[in-house]
Amino acid sequence: MTDSLFVEVENLHFSRGEKVIFDGVAMQIPRGRITAIMGPSGTGKTTLLKLIGGQLVPDAGRVLIAGQDVHALSRKALFTLRRRMGMLFQSGALFSDLSVFENVAFPLRVHTDLPQTMIRDLVLMKLQAVGLRGARELMPAELSGGMARRVALARAIALDPDLVLYDEPFVGQDPISKGVLVQLIKKLNEALGLTSIVVSHDIQETLSIADYVYVIADGQVMAHGTPENLDIDDDPRVTQFVHGEPDGPVPFHYQAPDYFRDILNLEGRP
């Protein structure tokens, strides 16, 4: 890779109570590319995004964005840095008391002193980009899941950020919406020169747009590489995940006593 790095994650440790979620994760995310972070459910992918966004503080290790250590910044500097980041939440997280238009205008109104007409132009541009210019009067409750996510995407790019974090953008979408989102993420990345981090477990969609892929499991990076060479990696956990095999190193069965003994109730459990 010849590109300069935009986000660097160094030796990240994080635990929640007793449970260790990250045990020394390291990643290099290049500028202007789409980097995917994949892994089975419950491996802390969303937690990783929150660590990158500075909402959670790691037990050890650093996250550098454009050379700045996110967790060493003051609250004010952190909020300034976040203006350069957009984040697309799993649920969309639109403000339910504001209309679609106002939702997209929100970051502009808060962070800029632009006149009303210019805000209108910018908002319509962003809504046009996600194809929902006609829905600007609607309230978030009136939108379908896919539309809500597209509005959230328009809001995430409202301030023309350098970095966009996507948290499970494809989850719970019908194939049409998935296709639309895949196209949008790719197009926006190319058109705006964004650096994108996509967290997902939808293999097909993610691999089709990612330039580079990290697979995490058990609190560590299990494999990384371009989508083409990821498949041939010989780690069984990665193979199981990429091929979607039901049983493997990640077991199909939740930890349980022997089936035969349990059926006959030899251990006297209810």
Partner: peptide, 14 residues
């Protein structure tokens, strides 16, 4: 619960 507070924080609004 709908992550509106978190997303507000990410937009840079307390």
């Amino acid at each position: 619960a709908t992550e509106q507070l978190t997303s507000m924080e990410m937009i840079g609004v307390d």
